[in-house]
Structure formats: structure tokens, C-alpha cells
């Protein structure tokens, strides 16, 4: 019995979260296979075959996988999955859409967002916005699991696994891809950035003007609270929190952020947290390694200038 990891890529590279899933799979000490879906995606299958710890790459190359739909990827995984002990991926928007579908079709439960794994079937996962850690044991023959990527190191290169082509079932035609609108930026991906500079709604129209130079100084990513996104000051894909992206960078700046538990859920595992807030009683200070009580409109430009020296 082996483990099957659903790989994710941006058309150019395998995502770091897939490498983190490979590390998580180590808990079982079983051969790790990686499924790469795409169209004209031989380069991506090759890239996956080089990840240390990967024994085999299953490559499903099909025209309808240029923009893989959850319904179609799930059908493929169900076709392959019966031979596996574990179907695993990172807890990303893509896998969150696909894996519950797979689990239901295989008639097994799914474990979402595991932060630790004890083979063969015990998992720790956060519940209630990360306020509680729940340990669960699954009784199913096939384990369908997503992992919290930030809880696992990324597997480096170091393999030369065999790549096997697999046939994908034809599209079920339940849905159709129409278009996408991805943020183009030269900053690193939020979920894996070394430094994240996040702002709250108080930054208002000056969100980018104030935070971008600071993020730029570190080659970091921008993050935001739900309130900043709802108000239209920041795009949806940079919401950090319980219901947004989970981050755990080396350095996290919380600027003009009150520290609601839904926000903390997405960043409290950061190594160093810096908070800047003019309210000395803001809850965020209870979670910050370094707290600065100041008006952010003065402190942020001053900080950016001091760091650029």
C-alpha cells in the first residue's frame, strides 16, 4: 500500500505546499506517489519526480486539465484511489474543493487541515478558530487528508522517480471553467513567504502606499484582515485568518490590526510577531513579541525609512 499526493501547480512550478505534503507523508513510512494533472505538463511531472521522498509520479495530461475542475480531478482520484492507503494534499483552495468530493465518493471521512500526523490514522487538527486542538482517529480503510502546509517543512529535491502516464476519465460536464483573475505580483506567495506585512481596515485607502514599501524591504508578502478586505482596501486572496490563508512566517507585522481571534487563527504560529497599534489595550499585543504603541501613519514610514538605511 502506498500514499497518493495530489500535486498543485501554477502552470510553471509545483507549489511549495505539495513539497510540504510530501514531508507530511513521511509519517506513514510508505512509498509516496504524486499525481500531477495538467495540459502539456510534462515539465511539471518531471519537477515532481525530483522531490526527495517521491517514489513515483502519476501524470494525467489531458486538454480538459488545462484548468482542472474539482469534479473532474475528483473522478480521476476516485479511479486511482482505491489502491491507496492515504490520499493526501495541502489545505489549499484547490484541494479543499477536490478532496471532500473524493472522500464522499469513496464513502470515507476526511480529515481537514491536520497539523500533526501519527501513523496510521491519528491526527491533530485545530478547531474553533485554532482555540482548541482536537486529536482524532479515523476508522476508514482509505484516509483522505489535507495538511496545514505551514506545520511541515518543504521537501527539497533529491529523487529521480519514474513518471507513469495515467488516463483521465472524460470530463463529466457538470461544470465549465470560464475565466480567472489572478493577482499578478512579483512578491512571494503569501502562504510560504518568509516575511508577511499585514494591515487592518484602519489603513483605508493608504493600505498599499504604506505597506508595500515595507514588504518590499524584506521581499515579503502582503496580508490583510477580513475587515480590510471587506472594505475593499485589499484583495480577497490576501486575507489572513481562520477563514482565509494560514501563514507562519519568520516575521509577521500586524499593523493597525486589533487581534480578533479569527485573525490570530491565521498567524499566531509566526516565529516573530510585531504589532503596531495606537490602542495600548488592543488584544494583538498579547500575542506580539514586539509591540509598538503608535499611530501607524507615523510609525510605518519611519520604520520603512529606518530599515532602508
Amino acid at each position: 500500500m502506498s500514499i497518493l499526493i495530489l500535486a498543485e501547480h501554477d502552470g510553471k512550478h509545483i507549489k511549495q505546499s505539495t513539497r510540504q505534503a510530501v514531508t507530511a507523508a513521511g509519517a506513514w513510512q510508505l512509498p509516496v506517489h504524486v499525481l500531477v494533472t495538467g495540459s502539456n505538463s510534462a515539465v511539471l511531472a518531471k519537477e515532481a519526480s525530483e522531490i526527495a521522498g517521491v517514489a513515483k509520479v502519476l501524470h494525467a495530461d489531458a486538454a480538459h486539465f488545462e484548468h482542472p475542475l474539482a469534479e473532474d480531478v475528483a473522478a480521476l482520484l476516485v479511479q486511482l484511489g482505491a489502491d491507496y492507503k492515504v490520499i493526501l494534499s495541502a489545505h489549499t483552495a484547490f484541494s479543499k474543493s477536490v478532496l471532500p468530493r473524493v472522500a464522499a465518493l469513496l464513502d470515507v471521512a476526511m480529515i481537514s487541515d491536520a497539523v500533526s500526523i501519527t501513523a496510521p490514522a491519528t491526527y491533530v487538527r485545530p478547531i474553533y478558530a485554532g482555540n482548541v486542538l482536537s486529536t482524532v482517529e479515523s476508522s476508514d480503510a482509505i484516509q483522505v487528508v489535507t495538511i496545514r502546509a505551514t506545520s511541515f517543512a518543504a521537501a527539497a529535491n533529491g529523487a529521480n522517480a519514474e513518471v507513469t502516464a495515467v488516463n483521465a476519465p472524460v470530463s463529466a460536464g457538470l461544470s465549465r471553467w470560464i475565466k480567472e483573475d489572478k493577482t499578478v505580483s512579483d512578491r512571494p506567495e503569501l502562504s510560504s513567504a518568509r516575511v508577511v506585512v499585514s494591515g487592518g481596515r484602519s489603513l483605508a485607502e493608504r493600505f498599499n502606499e504604506l505597506l508595500e514599501p515595507l514588504a518590499h524591504r524584506f521581499g515579503g508578502a502582503l496580508g490583510a484582515t477580513r475587515a480590510a478586505v471587506d472594505a475593499g482596501f485589499a484583495p480577497n486572496d490576501i486575507q489572513v485568518g481562520q477563514t482565509g490563508t494560514i501563514v507562519a512566517p519568520e516575521l509577521y507585522f500586524a499593523i493597525g490590526i486589533s487581534g480578533a481571534m479569527q485573525h490570530l487563527a491565521g498567524m499566531k504560529d509566526s516565529k516573530i510577531i510585531v504589532a503596531i497599534n495606537h490602542d495600548p489595550d488592543a488584544p494583538i499585543f498579547q500575542h506580539a513579541d514586539y509591540g509598538l504603541v503608535a499611530n501607524l501613519f507615523d510609525a510605518v514610514p519611519e520604520l520603512t525609512a529606518a530599515l532602508s538605511k
Partner: peptide, 21 residues
């Protein structure tokens, strides 16, 4: 799924306030 136990997450170690930038 059987829940074996629940626990509080480990608290962060307390931080400090800094006076200025």
C-alpha cells in the same frame, strides 16, 4: 472519526513593548 482528546494550544511566550521605532 473518533475524537480522542482536545487540548489548549501551547501559549506563545510573552513579548515586550518597545518605546519607539
Amino acid at each position: 472519526l473518533k475524537q480522542l482528546k482536545v487540548a489548549d494550544p501551547e501559549p506563545r511566550k510573552p513579548g515586550i513593548k518597545v518605546a519607539n521605532v
